[in-house]
């Protein structure tokens, strides 16, 4: 059997397994899972983690584990909302300023690691604290003067509703797929992540590639911020690295997608994983598993299970 056929077979098995899980789950919840309305809800919930995960993919693949992404989302979403609402900049403010903020914040974080030679997860945590502090400062002032700690996006919320979200999702997927698999930047990022020494020897400008990857990643993160701000109306500030919880589902999505990387490429895997993770929460809610405890426990168990399945026949230590 050729390599292509073997891969196709694996992909079919993966699709079959996901399909089977959906059918069984649907039976378990008396047919409430696979309804048009519920699938719409699942897709709606999968869009935010998908965009965050695509962003992470471009940043993490080159070896930068940036944990300030959650804080970046919160801060840039609030900046966008302020520009849109308070400064009257409308959609231009919401989209433009959120994206610009996301890129600037991500560049600060990544540059801190690349130029100061600090491990990326350390600089990421440091920057997360700084971003959180900036938003907290703003929240504190706003809570005194505006009667609410964070700005609410009252208008300009179409990007957080169907069908616009789905359209943006499809465009986002196409962009992520093409850039990651079919662009020089994407291939160079993957080369750096795969073998830094070879990438360097082949004349790839490491720093430029990593920073460019972070720009692309930040654009996806910025889109995630816009979508979530539009969907939820407001994103509250946090402190003490509470922003990490914003990206927990996305981290789980990336982890799952990485587990299936041998079967499907990352951008596709992220779609599957995001839908899978959000479906999991949906099914657990339909079953009646308590949120906050039982659901998170199940997610943890499923993530571990997927890790085990994806490396079922791999002997050795999985890093």
């Amino acid at each position: 059997m050729g390599v292509k056929m073997r891969k196709l077979k694996k992909q079919m098995i993966l699709l079959g397994c996901i399909g089977a899980i959906f059918v069984i789950s649907n039976m378990a919840v008396d047919g409430r899972l696979l309804t048009w309305n519920n699938m719409k809800i699942i897709i709606t919930h999968a869009i935010f983690p998908s965009f965050v995960s695509w962003g992470m993919m471009f940043i993490f693949t080159s070896g930068l584990i940036d944990l300030s992404i959650g804080a970046n989302i919160l801060l840039s979403a609030n900046i966008g909302a302020i520009c849109a609402m308070d400064l009257g900049m409308g959609y231009f403010g919401l989209i433009g300023m959120t994206l610009i903020s996301a890129v600037i914040l991500e560049q600060l974080s990544v540059n801190c690691s690349v130029n100061l030679k600090i491990p990326s997860w350390i600089s990421g945590l440091g920057m997360a604290l700084i971003f959180e502090a900036i938003l907290t400062f703003y929240s504190t002032i706003r809570s005194k003067t505006e009667g609410s700690s964070n700005i609410t996006l009252v208008n300009y919320r179409e990007m957080g509703s169907m069908p616009y979200m789905a359209i943006i999702w499809i465009i986002g997927f196409a962009a992520a797929y093409i850039i990651f698999n079919r662009s020089t930047l994407g291939l160079n990022i993957r080369a750096i992540g795969g073998n830094e020494g070879v990438a360097k020897a082949m004349g790839i400008n490491m720093k430029k590639t990593m920073l460019s990857g972070a720009v692309v990643g930040a654009l996806f993160i910025g889109m995630a911020a816009i979508i979530q701000e539009s969907y939820a109306g407001k994103l509250a500030s946090t402190s003490g690295l509470g922003s990490l919880s914003t990206i927990f589902k996305s981290l789980a999505t990336v982890l799952l997608a990485q587990s299936f990387e041998r079967v499907v490429s990352m951008p596709v895997g992220i779609i599957f994983s995001a839908v899978f993770v959000t479906s999991l929460f949906n099914v657990l809610t339909l079953i009646g598993v308590p949120s906050g405890t039982g659901q998170e426990m199940c997610l943890g168990a499923i993530v571990i299970l997927c890790g085990i399945i994806s490396h079922w026949r791999y002997k050795g230590v999985v890093k």
């Binding site: 919930h45 979530q228 969907y231 407001k234 929460f281 949120s291």
Partner: peptide, 12 residues
């Protein structure tokens, strides 16, 4: 943990 997560939970 956060209100934006609460909205998703409520929809489910």
């Amino acid at each position: 943990d956060a209100a934006d997560a609460a909205q998703g939970q409520l929809e489910d």
